[in-house]
Each structure stands twice: as structure tokens, then as C-alpha cells.
Amino acid sequence: MFENSDGGVRIELRELTKRYPGQTAPAVDAVSLDVPAGELVVFVGPSGCGKTTTMKMINRLIEPTSGEIRIGDEDVLRMRPDDLRRHVGYVIQQIGLFPHLTIAQNVGVVPKLLGWSKAKINDRVDELLGLVGLDAADFRSRYPRQLSGGQQQRVGVARALAADPPVMLMDEPFGATDPITREHLQNEFLRLQRELRKTIIFVTHDFEEAIKLGDRIAVLREGSHIAQYDRPARILSAPADDYVAGFIGTAGTLKRLALITVEEARTAGDGPEGTAGLPEVEATATLREALDAMVAHGTEEVAAVSGDVRHRLTYQDICQAINSESREVEPSGG
């Protein structure tokens, strides 16, 4: 199923519509959208705009009223729903780990449904727990209630990845965690996705999360109408209309900070001189984190650290990076 499952495959929605019985306006109204293979697309939009409904039609937990869905070259509406779902990873906000199964059994659910051998499932479980940063030896035989919220989220992601599906659907997967855990999970998830290159549809309320994780963002309004579908930087710098601009809020510039890494902002001249004693940030951190560090320590400089290499990053560097970034983007906007 789904050719080319090394990495992701493309998802196409054509005129996808869902009308719940007894409702006049469709919850999802003729949505058409292409998600390129290996990209993470974030659906953002106000509550009730149809994000979940759109997503659940893709694995047919909700049957579309009309329209087409293709994953790779396959017509999803022609497949047997249970088969389809075994090949589409699914993470829900409530995590939904089975309390009566161990972590290993939870992660092994789909492989077991697919009839893998015990040994193969065991190996895969260990591999996946490692992948999401949990020590397999320690966690395998625990039960979900013996895990923290953040650890459960990781298991939820591992479980969705178990049979190596080319496509993942994630409905507010980090929604139920505190901000610090959430940021941590996002970072790890990004690292994972860079490696795995799945095709992912990711639903969130949180625009910051969308900017941070999305290769593209679809800003939705009532009825799942697409207000804008573009790369995060473009949405920030060239919102299509007032609705999108309103969604971004007034802090557009600040949010752009989260898009640029310290490494990208570094100016050629700044070497390791004078970095001793400065607060340190990782070179892969975002400018927002660098700015956080500056504010926290009351300085205007930080040391960007990447292994043994250090260099100085100043407040001016950050301002410059932000402004040049928007200059780069704006001329092509429209």
C-alpha cells in the first residue's frame, strides 16, 4: 500500500465536503489542497472551523459527503477503511494510550494488526522508543499511568510511527502539555521529522506552533475554507487578507524571531572573542531563544555554541537578521 513508503507520499484533497446531518452549512466546504510528499502542513484556524473534520476524513473516521482524497496514487475512498488506517499514523489530542496495555503493547498495536512476528514487533518497539527519546529497557513494560504527560505524548507519537506509515495525521498532539514540555516535544519532533520526512497533517490552535513546525501553513476559516496556504515566512510577511493578518496578531515581527536560527543570523565578523562569561545558547536555537537569554541575563550579547565553536551574537545582529529576512521575502509577495 502507498508506493514509495520510504519517506512520505503526497496527499491531495479535491472539493472535499462534509455536511453533518441536520446542519444547513457544511462543516467542511469544498476544500482542495495539495500536501507535497515529505512536508508537514499545519492547519490553524479558530475553534469549530472544521480542522478536525477535514483531518478525520483523510483516515475516514468521518465519511466525506462528497469530494476526493488521494494518498500517493491511491483513491482513499475506494480503500477498506481498516486497511487504510493501518497505513496512516494517527495521533489525537487526548493521546489515547490504552491503560490496560504496557507501553510496548501500545506501540505494537498496529504492527500486531498487520500480522508482524513477535520478534519483529519487539525490535521495532525498542527502536521507536529510542527514536522518541525513551529508554526502552526502562519503559517497555510500564503502564501508561506510570508515565508523565510528556512521556505519554512521546509514546503516542511512537505508536503512530510504528508501522512506518508514509502519512501521519496529528490532531493537536502536544495540546495537553505545559508550555515547557510542549516546546521540548516540538523540538524533538522537528528533529525526528527532519530525519523521517513523513507527509504530515498537523492540527493546532497555536499559531506559534504552526510557524515553528510547519513547512507550510493552511490558515482556515469557517467551513474549512482556506484563507491562505503558504510557507510560514510568507504568511508572516505577506498575509493574504485582514483575516490572516488578524490571526497572526500584532506580534508578527516577534514571531519571525522563531523562524530564524542563531546560526543563520550570525554575521561573518563575530568570532569567538569576548564570549567568555556570556550566557550560552545553542547555534541551532532560534533568535527568540537568544533574545530570551539576553533578557533573562540583562545583557545585549550571548555566546552561540556549536560543539567547540563559539561566536558572539549581539542584539544588533538580531535586529539586522529580522529586517533583512523581511526584505528578502517581501518583494516576491502579493
Partner: peptide, 27 residues
């Protein structure tokens, strides 16, 4: 039984009978 568990089970491709036997009745 938490409906989220049933949804998770369905979403992973368990048949209705499998959900009944290995999730709902067990719990």
C-alpha cells in the same frame, strides 16, 4: 470507556469487533 480510546483504536485500524473485545470489554 473513554471515547478517545475507542477513537484511537478505530483510528489505528482495529475492526469494530477488535475494539469491542480488546478495548471496550477489557476495560
Amino acid at each position: 470507556v473513554d471515547p478517545a480510546l475507542v477513537e484511537a483504536a478505530r483510528g489505528m485500524g482495529m475492526t469494530r469487533l477488535q475494539v469491542l473485545l480488546s478495548v471496550e470489554l477489557r476495560l
